Simulated assay, not measured.
Amino acid sequence: MDITRTTVPGVGVLHHFLTRGGQRFGVLLDHSGLRSLLLYGTDDPDVPAQRIALDHDEADQIAEVLHSTPMADRLASLERRLAELHRGPA
C-alpha cells in the first residue's frame, strides 16, 4: 500500500492510501480533531466522491476493527509480560 501525507493549510492533515488493487481513499484529520474518510471514484481522482465524517469514538472503533490484534488481546499480552517481569527470572 502506498501512503502519502499532506498538510492542507487551514484544514489539517490528509493521508491518501492507494491499495495494491488501485483503489484510493483518504483520511482527513482536521484541526478540530474530526476525522473523515474520503472515498474516491474514477471520475476525478482528486475530488472525493464521498466523505464520511467520524466522531472520535467512531474513528477508534474502526481502528480497532482494522487492527490485526484487538486492543483487549494486546492489553492482556502486555499485562502478562509485566507480571513476568515483576516475578523476575525463574
Rank of each mutant, 00 (worst) to 15 (best):
T7N: 02
T7R: 03
T7Q: 03
V8I: 03
V8G: 00
P9K: 01
P9G: 00
G10P: 01
G10C: 00
G10E: 01
G10L: 00
V11S: 01
G12H: 00
G12W: 01
G12E: 01
V13F: 01
V13E: 05
V13P: 01
L14H: 01
L14Y: 00
H15A: 04
H15W: 04
H15L: 13
H16K: 08
F17K: 05
F17Q: 03
L18R: 04
L18M: 04
L18H: 05
L18T: 08
R20Q: 13
G21W: 00
G22P: 06
Q23A: 14
Q23H: 10
R24P: 05
R24N: 04
F25S: 10
G26C: 04
G26V: 06
L28C: 02
L29H: 06
D30C: 04
D30P: 04
H31P: 02
H31M: 07
H31N: 08
G33D: 03
G33Y: 01
G33P: 02
L34I: 11
L34T: 15
R35W: 05
R35Y: 03
R35M: 05
R35F: 05
R35L: 05
S36L: 06
S36Q: 14
L37V: 11
L37S: 02
L37F: 10
L38R: 03
L38Q: 10
L38H: 09
L39H: 12
Y40T: 04
Y40L: 06
Y40Q: 03
Y40H: 09
G41L: 08
D43C: 11
D43H: 12
D43N: 12
D44L: 08
P45C: 04
D46K: 09
D46I: 08
V47G: 00
V47P: 03
V47W: 00
V47R: 15
P48S: 08
P48N: 10
A49W: 07
A49E: 09
A49H: 13
Q50T: 11
R51F: 04
R51C: 11
I52K: 01
L54R: 04
H56G: 07
D57V: 12
D57P: 05
E58Q: 14
A59R: 02
A59F: 08
D60S: 07
D60V: 11
D60F: 07
D60Q: 13
Q61M: 09
Q61C: 05
I62C: 05
A63N: 11
E64A: 15
E64G: 11
V65D: 10
L66A: 12
H67A: 15
H67S: 15
H67W: 13
S68M: 13
S68G: 14
S68V: 14
T69N: 06
T69L: 12
T69D: 12
T69F: 07
T69Q: 15
T69K: 15
P70T: 09
P70F: 06
P70E: 07
M71S: 15
M71H: 12
M71C: 12
A72R: 09
D73M: 08
R74W: 03
L75T: 14
L75V: 15
A76L: 13
A76T: 10
S77E: 14
L78Q: 15
L78T: 15
R80K: 13
R81H: 08
L82M: 14
A83H: 09
A83Q: 14
E84F: 11
E84Q: 13
E84G: 14
L85A: 09
L85G: 06
L85I: 12
H86D: 15
R87C: 07
R87Y: 06
R87T: 09
G88M: 10
G88T: 10
A90I: 03
A90L: 13
